[in-house]
């Protein structure tokens, strides 16, 4: 019974505080913002890079790699054309020799 009598005023105080806070809290929106001085207005924060950064993909090697691949592929293809042409020449010479020897024989 004593406990009930003592806790009733405490509950009332808590309710009153909650009411006051709920009224006062929105009023902080009307509070004036503190003025910045010139130095603070120019301030910038330098932060250490943690994890991958934007410059971790260098463009130079990618560019050199791309043009290198183009050059290698085109040179290799021209070499293939030269090889096919030479193969045709060899076949033609073989055929000519065979026919010449047949004619003589």
């Amino acid at each position: 019974m004593k406990v009930v009598k003592r806790s009733a005023p405490m509950l009332w105080i808590v309710l009153q505080l909650a009411l006051v806070l709920s009224v006062l809290t929105p009023l902080t929106a009307f509070a004036e913002e503190p003025k910045e001085d010139a130095a603070e207005s120019r301030s910038a924060a330098f932060q250490a890079v943690e994890g991958p950064s934007a410059e971790q993909v260098p463009g130079g090697p990618l560019l050199i790699g791309a043009y290198g691949v183009i050059l290698v592929l085109l040179v290799a293809y021209v070499a293939r054309l030269g090889s096919l042409h030479a193969k045709n020449q060899v076949e033609l010479e073989r055929l000519t020799r065979a026919l010449e020897s047949t004619r003589k024989g």
């Binding site: 463009g59 990618l62 560019l63 790699g65 791309a66 691949v69 183009i70 592929l73 293809y77």
Partner: peptide, 20 residues
């Protein structure tokens, strides 16, 4: 054959650009 060579060039240079 020539189309395939240029297709290979496209398929190699494109991803190198895409990496960046």
């Amino acid at each position: 054959e020539v189309g395939a060579i240029f297709c290979l060039i496209v398929m190699v240079t494109g991803p190198l650009w895409g990496r960046k």
